[in-house]
Design a protein around this nucleic acid. Sequence first.
DNA 1: CGCTACGTTGAGAACAATCAACCCCGGTGG
DNA 2: CCACCGGGGTTGATTGTTCTCAACGTAGCG
Lengths: 255, 255
Amino acid sequence: MGKQARTAFSAQDMNGLAKAVARPMPAGSPCGACPVRHLTVCAVLDPEELLQLTAIVSNVELSAGQPLFDEGEPAVHVFNVTAGAIRVYKLLPDGRRQITGFLFAGDFLGLAVTDVYAYGAEAVIPAVLCRFPRRKLEGLMARFPKMESRLLGMASNELVIAQEQMLLLGRKNAKEKVVSFLLMLSRREVQRGQPGDPVAVPITRADIGDYLGLTTETVSRTFTRLKNSGLISMQPGGRVRLVDREALNDLAEGF
Amino acid sequence: MGKQARTAFSAQDMNGLAKAVARPMPAGSPCGACPVRHLTVCAVLDPEELLQLTAIVSNVELSAGQPLFDEGEPAVHVFNVTAGAIRVYKLLPDGRRQITGFLFAGDFLGLAVTDVYAYGAEAVIPAVLCRFPRRKLEGLMARFPKMESRLLGMASNELVIAQEQMLLLGRKNAKEKVVSFLLMLSRREVQRGQPGDPVAVPITRADIGDYLGLTTETVSRTFTRLKNSGLISMQPGGRVRLVDREALNDLAEGF
DNA sequence: CGCTACGTTGAGAACAATCAACCCCGGTGG
DNA sequence: CCACCGGGGTTGATTGTTCTCAACGTAGCG
């Protein structure tokens, strides 16, 4: 594994992409009307409690590529994705990057034990998030233990996903990695109530590579081979059809 | 990737792979006297609450190589390591193994969102653990929210460590991986109040390989090269001296 | 004393990385 | 209008790190 120096993506180099600004929650859309509430922490709160949450929340909108925060930055907020997609990543000093996760509607980020973020976060495609001041949310959690309990459940779940990803990074080959990735995207689309079969892949080859521990070339070649062997087929709009789901499942699990 | 070594134990676990048995907590050592309490969940409980914890805890002792539980097994207990070392791992059907973590005194395991464990756990060296029935612990957490809060903190911390490990698996080369591993062991030894410089490495090359996404041969060769370049030196008792800590730190971080 | 697990080293193969060329597309400015 | 540019994607040739296969050394233990 050589050191690939990376040119793109350091926080503000291209397009002069500045940090996001937050605005107060639009009056017409309190948390009670949130379309992705059932997916996230807020699902466990009753209307009364939701009002208190609404009181501390603000909205963040990001355009594609725009950073939400950088690794090492003071961790003053936590976030909840309500639309779009976010990538979370860590960097080595020479520019090598590992994307540790893609976050979609309903996903939570920014939990930190230290006072700084341990990773950076950027929008993959235009995204909208709820932003909570960490201190205030902690205060709320102290009052609503079921919220903390829910968060613990979500964190435990993320831990399981992280272990799955370690298995992928450490022990799967390029084909198994790419197929696992496609199936993961598909599963999460279903979770969000979308079809999941022609699965949307709004993520560049470079990002996929940095997520799977591969280069863009290897990702590209692997896609080509999967197409040629008839396991997947490309569709307009960056969608991928999972032609032989059985075979793909087996491939991903290493059979 | 074969089965693990085992030495002979008492008659009832001749094959070395028998599941551990739990015994009631010895009367003379309630949680209040636990030597690793400050490292773990129990740190936040007062004496009164600790008594209630003592009431539901039992002890598990494992010999080297003995399994604690397997992936897919009903997740009825959670555990707290009080001595020794545990490896947590996931398998692919053909036997490829990824060790997702090594756990030492103070570490917690068994949190699960599903009703089965998402990974297996075995003793690396003889180990002792506290065992709590999951249901009862959840009941206790409902009554002591600060315990749940502490657990959330520990889970968040593990998540950060997991992301670090993804960076390692996906983007570091063999040398960087092995050095990162040694420094991690050293740091955790210090956390437990031990020297940390001649660092104890009670882990086989095969386990190290399965943790770092390498083969045993590559791990062995990498150790040899680190020795030859004077960065580390071997000491009796499986200890490794970190000769040039500065250089090792830089290496691990990819400078 | 011989077994087995563990560790080391060597030779060669293989998979993915690297380096490089090229295509397509959309946006932009001459 | 179109030439140019830059990002993204694909493909080819070659390199190189790590894996695989194999042999051998050592230590602990029955």
